[in-house]
Simulated assay, not measured.
Amino acid sequence: MKHTFEWKGIDHVQLAAPPGCEVEARRFFGELLGMTEVPKPEKLQVRGGAWFQCGPQMIHVGVENSFQPAKKAHPAFLVHHIERLMEHLQEHGVAYRIDDEIPGVIRFFAEDPFGNRLEFMEVK
């Protein structure tokens, strides 16, 4: 079957967080990880949360009243100079777990302040 549509990529990944998460989300994704906050459209601001630019994609931290952290599903961030990121996280007390199961890929897992699983990787 021939399709008449075309995939362009992923615009954003949404991570859930509890109500009142904005300050901690800005500290972690903005200050610690260095992502630029993107203003939410005015009509969506009442929902809370925060959006961050991550390369050409975005991370949307959205408020979920009955929040439960994602322990399996996760975004995987591509990083240049991943060792520097690891040092930076260690200096700021962010725990992570190195995983060497994929040949040619340096990667590790950490959690955001809300307990969501995050993967960081660099292809060597």
Results as ranks from 00 to 15, higher is better:
residue 26 R to D: 01
residue 81 H to E: 12
residue 107 R to M: 12
residue 87 E to D: 12
residue 84 R to D: 15
residue 106 I to D: 13
residue 85 L to C: 02
residue 31 E to F: 06
residue 92 H to L: 09
residue 54 C to S: 06
residue 97 R to I: 15
residue 97 R to T: 15
residue 84 R to M: 11
residue 106 I to P: 02
residue 28 F to K: 03
residue 115 G to F: 05
residue 87 E to Q: 07
residue 30 G to Y: 02
residue 123 V to T: 14
residue 17 A to Q: 07
residue 8 K to W: 01
residue 37 E to T: 05
residue 119 E to M: 08
residue 33 L to K: 01
residue 4 T to P: 07
residue 93 G to I: 03
residue 109 F to K: 03
residue 21 C to K: 02
residue 80 H to A: 13
residue 11 D to A: 04
residue 43 K to M: 11
residue 87 E to K: 09
residue 28 F to N: 00
residue 52 F to S: 00
residue 40 K to S: 10
residue 27 R to P: 08
residue 114 F to E: 04
residue 104 G to K: 11
residue 110 A to Q: 04
residue 74 H to L: 12
residue 41 P to L: 03
residue 54 C to Q: 02
residue 110 A to F: 01
residue 104 G to M: 12
residue 9 G to K: 01
residue 60 H to T: 09
residue 62 G to T: 07
residue 43 K to Q: 13
residue 23 V to P: 11
residue 89 L to F: 11
residue 64 E to W: 05
residue 13 V to A: 01
residue 78 L to M: 13
residue 19 P to F: 00
residue 63 V to P: 04
residue 106 I to K: 15
residue 114 F to Y: 08
residue 96 Y to K: 06
residue 7 W to Q: 14
residue 104 G to A: 09
residue 34 G to Q: 11
residue 89 L to D: 08
residue 73 A to Q: 05
residue 43 K to W: 07
residue 14 Q to R: 13
residue 60 H to K: 10
residue 34 G to I: 14
residue 35 M to L: 15
residue 12 H to M: 05
residue 70 A to P: 00
residue 30 G to S: 01
residue 98 I to R: 13
residue 123 V to K: 08
